[in-house]
């Protein structure tokens, strides 16, 4: 079992709720914008606490409101790739990549596979959107995660870049073998990348 999620969160007037159990390695969470897909990722990563429900990933209980279990975000080992990359602006690319790294020796391999080896000494502000996203993926992978959360990894890319990015995600998915939850509003993208599609 990859993801067993059942969460409810009230944010102001809006209610964010979803429940699914997935056996598949890769799961897509699809829905119109504003429905709270990112909030679901935040709850799985431990950045938001649901009002009710539970989060289990790969059989490990991360949140269980009824049993008062709440593993802190920094112990969850989530490889979270944010939609806005969130690179640390005061650290160069190399130090961004190594921020959560357990094994710095993997830097070269991962940088090569993401085609960012030539960017290591650059600063985040000097990266294009696509480069920043690849660095964010590399940073998440180097942190030795137990599962991957990808928030709209293909948004704001033109058709050519999109195809490239999709191949990259397929490669990350197959090479890492980790449970992967991908948020998107594009059904076609979801169906191509993930064996299971959950609608919100």
């Amino acid at each position: 079992m990859s993801f067993d999620i059942d969460v409810t969160l009230r944010r102001g007037d809006a209610l964010v709720a979803t429940a699914f159990v997935a056996e598949e390695q890769a799961v897509a969470l699809v829905g119109p914008s504003g429905v709270g897909k990112t909030s679901v990722l935040d709850m799985i990563a431990g950045l938001l606490r649901p009002d009710r429900g539970h989060v289990r990933v790969g059989g490990r209980v991360l949140t269980d409101r009824a049993a008062r279990v709440e593993v802190p975000a920094h112990h969850r080992r989530a490889g979270y790739v944010f939609q806005d990359a969130r690179l640390f602006l005061h650290l160069d690319v190399r130090r961004n990549l190594l921020y959560g790294a357990k094994d710095a020796a993997r830097l070269a391999t991962i940088a090569a596979s993401l085609d960012i080896a030539h960017l290591l000494d650059r600063w985040p502000r000097a990266l294009s959107g696509g480069e920043a996203r690849r660095v964010a993926i590399g940073r998440a992978l180097l942190s030795d995660p137990e599962f991957l959360l990808l928030d709209e990894p293909l948004s704001s890319l033109d058709a050519l870049r999109r195809e490239e990015a999709m191949r990259l995600i397929e490669r990350v998915r197959d090479d890492s073998g980790l449970p992967l939850l991908l948020v998107t509003h594009d059904e076609r993208e979801a169906e191509r990348l993930c064996a299971r599609v959950v609608r919100m």
């Binding site: 950045l47 975000a73 920094h74 490889g79 979270y80 969130r86 921020y99 959560g100 942190s143």
Partner: peptide, 20 residues
Amino acid sequence: RLEDAARTLGAGRWRTFRTI
């Protein structure tokens, strides 16, 4: 949000404060 990113990368409260 950068502090959140640091936490998902395994940084506890003190390390997040010190490094971010």
